[in-house]
Simulated scan of single mutants.
Amino acid sequence: MGSLFHTPVKTVLLCGAALVLPAAAAGCSGGHGGHGADGAPAAKEATIEQLAERTGCTLTGTRKAAELKQGQCKNGKGRYVLVSFTSDKTRDSWLTEAKPWGGTYLVGPKWVAVATPQILETLRKDVGGRIVKGDDHGGGGGGGGQQHGSGHGS
């Protein structure tokens, strides 16, 4: 087996990140079940269709590759992108590739939502997960890789 990200998949991911992250109109989440101390549910494995249903969004522009499926969402809370993966290992590899672009991610088992921190905090109340920040490209402090909230680890 070659690289986890074959050229077409890597191109889709990087192009998607380049288009979505600067616009801060990405990500989503998934999960359902018990609630943590902060009131957010425990994140559960979910498809982008299930995540869209749980967050009350209209899913558009879906794309599928061997290792992932991605779609755009819009609801009353804002715009975000949902991505589901074949495994947590694939999700983690995607995050490693995406985090240098910056951005903020809501991470659950085999899925990621990408959006502004405010939208992700709202979505997290519906589907759980943990918020992970990409690399900071601004002038101030606070590096990347910070995690907030509770939810499912890997």
Rank of each mutant, 00 (worst) to 15 (best):
S87D: 03
G16M: 02
A113F: 08
Q147F: 04
R124Q: 09
L82Y: 03
T55E: 06
G2V: 05
A23K: 04
I48G: 03
V112P: 00
G103T: 10
D88V: 06
I131D: 01
T96K: 15
T96M: 13
S84N: 09
P8S: 03
G141I: 11
P109R: 06
F5R: 02
G142A: 12
K133F: 14
G27S: 10
E121N: 09
Q50C: 00
G103Y: 12
G129D: 00
G151Y: 05
L4E: 14
D38C: 14
A18K: 06
H152Y: 09
V127K: 02
W111F: 05
C73R: 02
P100Y: 10
D136W: 08
S150W: 09
K99V: 14
S154C: 03
G39K: 03
A24N: 10
G153S: 14
H35L: 15
K44H: 10
G142N: 12
L82E: 02
Q146V: 13
G145K: 05
V81Q: 10
P100N: 11
K89T: 07
E97L: 15
V12D: 08
S93G: 14
N75L: 13
D136G: 07
C73L: 11
P8V: 10
P117Y: 05
A52F: 01
H35E: 14
G129N: 06
G30R: 02
G39I: 01
T58D: 07
W101Q: 04
V83A: 08
Q70N: 08
A43V: 05
A46E: 06
L4N: 11
K69D: 01
Q50G: 03
S93V: 04
P100H: 11
Q70L: 15
G27Y: 07
T58H: 07
L95N: 03
V114I: 15
D136S: 12
V12Q: 05
L95H: 12
Q50A: 13
H32N: 12
E121F: 07
H32P: 00
G34D: 15
K10R: 13
Q118I: 04
G140S: 13
E53C: 07
T96Q: 12
G56H: 08
K89F: 10
A25P: 00
G149A: 06
W94I: 04
V81D: 06
S84M: 02
C15Y: 13
A18G: 09
S87A: 07
G56Y: 03
G2K: 11
F85K: 07
P8E: 11
G16F: 03
A65N: 10
A52V: 02
T11G: 01
E97W: 14
V132P: 00
A18V: 02
A37V: 15
L123G: 00
S3D: 13
F5I: 07
K74A: 13
A65Y: 11
D88M: 00
